[in-house]
Write a protein that binds this DNA or RNA. Structure first.
Lengths: 354, 354
DNA sequence: AATACACTTGAATACGCATTCACGTGGGTC
DNA sequence: GACCCACGTGAATGCGTATTCAAGTGTATT
């Protein structure tokens, strides 16, 4: 029966030093004489000692843990982002506590309180809504947080998104330039600013060309709803010749409904443009033209922003929008002379406290 | 500038009670008079008090945190499993700390030590290898752990998998019954027992029918390798008329290579059977016949097993294999009279300490 | 009326570590 | 040779909570 719990005091005793010296050996930046370092490390190795992170956190006030709240992983953009975020945080010495919450303000608020009780150093809210009272609470407690892939009306809230309006605009511009006359939109969830921004950009591009959307149907970021929307669009006497879909996850359902169920040629009869550029978009079955949300850059920006607040005490920096280039593939007709590298510019919107 | 940190002592002062009384109010099972409960709750609410989980864990020795080590989320089986595991643990009052580790024993060992330093109550190792020394270490420290979707040679290690051998056997049986004569296998990673078990079952079924596999090529659970394997199979003078693929993630690549690149009809010229039944397998683009690994049941079993060790002190229970039924879809010819509900039996293999 | 008992409560303490603080010790400077 | 200073070290203390333990209250029992 081996020792139940090895503490710094045990190591100290074995190495013939004091407990604080053991602590210093395991605290980068502390100065300890080389011989004691060696003795302590040797003793620690023999005993199998590991510093208790909880005790450490309790008196430093830093847990090196980041809480992340997610709505779901069904949309493959989130697994991609989650893994990258985790790896970035790991590289900076942080761990990630992952919690799923349905996208209800009430539930998210409870989850966030839970994370705060766990003394996380910061919180990432990925694609979930939070109540204003919670936002206030986080601010008062100066708990660092960043919204990931989810903006809110208040542009002063720290958030990292892609340039959704610009991306939607680019999608619209692209489809108009492709000579499409009846362009429909299967929109994202209307309670999501992401979805509304993409839609607004899309509509602006069409308006600028003197067009208006053939139809706009909410897809709620769900496959089944998007498939149903597609059926509805093609039950019309004047079906669309192009569809801009609010994200790739829905676009796959739209494509499948068009091809397997409605027998429409893509892009011959209908062009389809998505949003996200998840890995699957490049697979042969879909070959989807789409706007790329660069998960890697978004994760980098999120980590930088959050750790800036935590470690450097940076003030919350408002919303950061990452450039969202159009990736040309085979699901949409490519206009003559369309540049291969068209992209919407990235930009930082400084928050103006409402 | 609001209070920096509200402690139980602050609440106690405001409510006119002692700190232990506050503690008791927030500790289910402790008896406190109703009026004091009310006073304490009121004061806590006004101050915005949340018990510090770190301090609590420090002297209870229980963190209510589970560490989970994952190799990647690229195979969609893992996001599905991750979300279900998280929800199950949440329901039992536990949080999940997620860490990614390349599938190298060395790295996994380091990550696990890291989790132990964080005082997790238990660890789930999802599809990663660990060294024998680490296994020993975990046993000595009596740190509960369960291998998820990854068995090891030592059947006494607590693990939850599907019935991989039986599943592979069923796949082989099914393809033989379908009248296929040249059955190939794109195998999983050879260092994974999952992959080897599926292969062994498959080979046994063929052998029983007097056949032997046309070819077995390692796919390493990777899309690109699987696609290349498919090309190699069809570069032969005697290409296969059926392929059993080690998991769905690879099977999608095989299907796409067959259809988009090689122009082979599925299931007309080639039948394809996968393994996992991830959500995408049911999508029209793939419509993949496959063996279901029931993520939900596997997660339930894992949670039950791990929390049994943590809360009830159960002894590690050996490997548990969950039934893995064959899901009939359109990617493989269905033999005449094949039962619609064929399934491999689930079974518990008691560990015999080597 | 006296004792026993169930119940509630606060003072003290422990959990494992990091961090003051004060105390040497040695080498360098004039 | 006296002084100063940088450095290494251990004793003591605090982080915020849960858990002894003993004391106090009131009710039931004899």
């Amino acid at each position: 029966m081996p020792e139940a719990r090895i503490t710094a005091a045990d190591v100290a005793r074995k190495a013939g030093v004091s407990q604080p010296t053991v602590s210093r050996v395991f605290t980068p930046g502390s100065r300890v004489s080389p011989d004691k370092v060696a003795r302590v490390r040797e003793a620690a190795r023999e005993l199998g000692y590991l510093p208790n992170t909880l005790a450490r956190s309790l008196n430093t006030g830093r847990s090196y843990t980041i809480g992340i709240v997610l709505a779901y992983l069904t949309n493959p953009f989130y697994p991609e982002a989650l893994q990258i975020l985790s790896e970035r945080f790991s590289a900076r010495g942080y761990h990630m506590m992952v919690i799923f919450a349905q996208n209800l303000e009430e539930e998210v608020d409870g989850v966030v309180e839970n994370l705060m009780a766990h003394q996380v150093d910061g919180i990432i809210l990925a694609s979930v809504s939070m109540s204003n009272s919670l936002t206030e609470r986080l601010r008062e407690l100066s708990m660092p947080f960043v919204l990931f892939n989810r903006g809110q009306e208040d542009r002063s809230l720290p958030a990292v998104t892609s340039a959704n309006y610009a991306g939607g605009y680019l999608a619209g511009q692209f489809l108009v330039a492709g000579g499409h006359q009846r362009i429909a939109h299967v929109a994202g969830w209307q309670k999501s600013l992401n979805g509304r921004d993409r839609q607004a950009g899309f509509e602006a591009a069409l308006a600028e060309a003197g067009q208006s959307p053939l139809a706009i149907i909410e897809g709620a970021f769900r496959r089944d709803v998007a498939a149903e929307a597609t059926r509805a669009l093609f039950a019309r006497p004047d079906p669309p010749d192009a569809i801009f879909v609010g994200n790739d996850h829905m676009a796959f359902a739209v494509l499948e409904t068009l091809q397997s169920e409605l027998g429409r040629a893509v892009p011959g009869e209908v062009s389809v443009v998505g949003y996200d550029d998840v890995a699957m978009a490049a697979w042969p079955s879909y070959d989807l033209t789409t706007l790329r949300q660069p998960a890697s850059e978004m994760a980098d920006a999120t980590v930088t922003m959050l750790l800036g607040m935590i470690e450097a005490g940076d003030a919350p920096s408002g919303r950061l929008e990452i450039e969202s280039p159009l990736i040309l593939r085979g699901s949409a007709r490519i206009p003559e002379g369309w540049p291969r590298d068209a992209a919407s510019p990235s930009r930082l919107i400084q928050g103006d406290p409402k």
